[in-house]
């Protein structure tokens, strides 16, 4: 039995929890809601299930005839449908105040993604395409040095998480931080995809869609005449 995926998931959940804790210490999370962690875990599970089922359907495996396959996450999760599944859960869970709620959880989600990518050290999947850079690594027993692609991604997501935290304290218009986080996450995945080993070109259309949606939603949030997320201090 192999638990490397579980360790990576635990690192992601830990990073998410720590960022939520930091947000609470900074007074950015309202005290009236104490279940942000549960909500984000629910979104993550919904995303995993939706992405896994989509991946099964896209590869011709019927989840109705093979229901046990759904739990085999390592068999593949479709990134785009996973994102949609997580978003659907968040829409359902936050209902009336979705843009403001998404703003509040954006730093934590980006931190969680950083933890997930950093979890490559447990899974042994940090390395990407070949590289001659001084910091490139080689597989044990190999002379081929490679980009530590997932470590790059993890650092970029950490920077993005703290960037979102910074913006959350300064921008009060609802939806701007979340839309910016979406565009940033799409950009990080898109720019690292060419140095990530894959069988094809990767889900670059999903990343491009995320970037464009993030840009459009950021502009829309700025232009919309809505009250601020919280009173100016």
């Amino acid at each position: 039995m192999e638990f490397t995926l579980l360790w990576a998931a635990l690192l992601a959940v830990g990073a998410l929890w720590m960022m939520l804790r930091l947000e609470r210490r900074l007074g950015l999370l309202p005290d009236d809601r104490s279940d942000w962690f549960d909500t984000l875990l629910g979104a993550a599970v919904s995303g995993l299930v939706a992405g896994r089922i989509a991946a099964m359907l896209l590869t011709g495996t019927n989840p109705l005839t093979h229901p046990a396959d759904i739990i085999l996450i390592r068999g593949g999760v479709d990134t785009g449908f996973a994102s949609i599944g997580a978003l659907v859960f968040l829409v359902w869970a936050t209902r009336r105040s979705l843009p403001a709620a998404l703003d509040l959880v954006s730093p934590a989600v980006l931190a969680g993604l950083a933890g997930w990518h950093g979890g490559c050290v447990f899974r042994g999947t940090c390395l990407g395409t070949r590289s001659e850079f001084p910091w490139a690594f080689a597989e044990p027993g190999s002379a081929l040095t490679r980009h530590p692609t997932e470590i790059y991604s993890a650092f970029l997501f950490v920077a993005a998480a703290f960037g979102a935290l910074f913006l959350l304290r300064r921008i009060t218009r609802p939806g701007v931080v979340a839309a910016g986080a979406l565009a940033t996450a799409g950009t990080i995945r898109l720019v690292t995809e060419p140095i990530r080993p894959s069988l094809g070109s990767g889900p670059i259309w999903w990343y491009t869609t995320g970037i464009l949606a993030g840009i459009v939603l950021t502009a829309a949030a700025f232009l919309r005449q809505t009250p601020n997320r919280r009173p100016e201090t």
Binding site: M1, E2, L72, R74, G75, G76, G124, T125, L127, G128, T129, R130, E139, G141, S142, L144, R146, R196, P197, S198, L199
Partner: peptide, 22 residues
């Protein structure tokens, strides 16, 4: 070059194929 026990994922499969090809 490498032995993978259990379900293999796309990243590991692609990486190890690149290793044996080179």
């Amino acid at each position: 070059v490498y032995r993978h026990n259990g379900v293999i994922d796309e990243r590991t499969l692609s990486l190890q194929i690149d290793e044996i090809l080179n």
